[in-house]
Simulated assay, not measured.
Amino acid sequence: MDHYLNTTINVYRDAALKPDVGLCCTTSPMSALPGLEIPAIMKEMNYGCGSIVSARDLANNPKILYVGVGGGMELLQFSYFNRNAGGVIGVDVVDEMLTTCAANLSQAEIVNPWFEKEFIELRKGSALALPVDDNTIDVAGQNCLFNIFKESDLKTALQEIYRVLKPGGRLVMSDPICNQKINEALRNDERLRALCLTGSLSLQDYIKAITDIGFGTIEIRAKRPYRILAPKQYATDELIYIESVEVCAIKDAVPADGPCVFTGKAAIYYGDQEYFDDHKGHVLLPNQPLAVCDKTAANLVALNRNDIFISTSTWFYDGGGCC
């Protein structure tokens, strides 16, 4: 195991034994679900940087995998949607985190009459070698974990998720991103990387890492402010702005002209006809916005029409798109 991963394990071992309110973003959004009570200790150990639990991904009792269990909050939220024994699998490489998570789930069982610990199976294992069979998972999730990995390990982690997902399965995740250049001193600081700061990729490189594995559809669901690396506090000559991004990657076939990446763009037809049809599967009704992937947006712009408006990326996509 690379030395930087040992540093990461030590950071999260400490965070399991004593909750660290400064680790990642403990104020990230949490889903409010009827009848769900989240124990305070889970909130204190919310070591993610975004919200990845969404009802639209979780219909029909999906088999769910969550990598990097943290305090167990996401596991509890996921189990709300699959109340079968072993319906949710949680994987972590840190023994202390697994032990603490199990104890937190016992607390959750007390305050949630519907919840049983048996809904969740905790497994010891690495994101780089998941202890899960091929093509068995409907929804996989990770929150502020993959940004820790260096390039080769990130590729392996994404390949592992892709391997265990069923065709059509979804990877829901949140990670920090940074569109500025982060210098090598910061990149190579093992503790800062473990703290989910200096491993941040640009959004373009982050999406490319996902699509290179073979995911055919990428949905950018949110983009939020995350952290500032200031010259007086870090080894940098400029202010570095880090955001967090929430993404859903779908294991479907990559179209011949490349993956569909939704960044919150919409097309609006305002012409005189009943509708506009580009004969590529996209029909625009007058003044009714249609969410389009970046590829379709570019194709519509290339038509050089004066009756179609294409919005800029909103970095919010909630389904119902063109593809």
Rank of each mutant, 00 (worst) to 15 (best):
I52Q: 06
C49I: 07
T27L: 09
S31G: 14
A55F: 03
M45V: 00
S31C: 06
P34K: 12
I52V: 13
I38E: 02
S54N: 09
A40F: 13
T26N: 13
E44A: 03
A40P: 08
P39M: 00
G50W: 01
Y47N: 07
Y47C: 13
E37K: 03
P34W: 01
V53W: 09
E44I: 00
A55T: 03
E37T: 13
M45T: 02
A40G: 04
S28E: 13
S51E: 15
S51R: 14
C49Q: 09
I52T: 08
G48S: 10
S54I: 06
S31P: 12
S54F: 10
C49H: 07
G35M: 03
P29Q: 09
G35W: 02
A55E: 15
A40C: 15
P29Y: 01
A55Y: 14
G48T: 11
S51T: 10
I41C: 12
I41T: 04
M45H: 12
I38D: 01
N46G: 11
A32R: 10
P34S: 14
E44L: 10
K43E: 06
M45A: 01
M42Y: 00
T27S: 14
P34H: 04
C49V: 15
S54Q: 15
M45C: 06
L33E: 02
P39I: 00
M45D: 04
N46W: 02
T26L: 05
G50H: 05
G50V: 15
V53F: 12
P34Y: 04
V53Y: 11
I41S: 07
I38T: 02
L36Q: 01
I52F: 10
S51D: 10
L33R: 04
S51I: 07
T27P: 12
S31M: 11
M45S: 05
E44C: 02
M30S: 13
I38G: 04
P39N: 07
S51H: 11
S54K: 06
S54V: 10
I41V: 04
A55P: 03
T26S: 05
P34V: 06
G48L: 04
L33D: 08
L36C: 00
M45Y: 02
P39Y: 00
N46R: 09
T26C: 03
E44D: 14
E37P: 10
G35Y: 13
S28Y: 11
A40Q: 14
V53I: 10
S31A: 05
Y47E: 09
A40S: 14
E44S: 05
T27H: 15
A32L: 08
L36V: 15
T27E: 10
I41W: 09
M30A: 06
P34F: 02
S51W: 13
I52R: 12
L33M: 13
P29L: 05
I38R: 02
A40N: 09
G50R: 03
T27V: 09
P39C: 06
I52H: 08
A55I: 13
M42K: 01
T27W: 03
T27C: 10
S51K: 11
S31Y: 10
G35A: 10
P29D: 12
E44N: 13
G50S: 06
S51M: 14
M42W: 04
C49N: 13
L36E: 00
M30E: 09
L36H: 00
L33T: 04
M45I: 07
A55N: 09
G50D: 12
G35P: 06
G48H: 11
T27G: 15
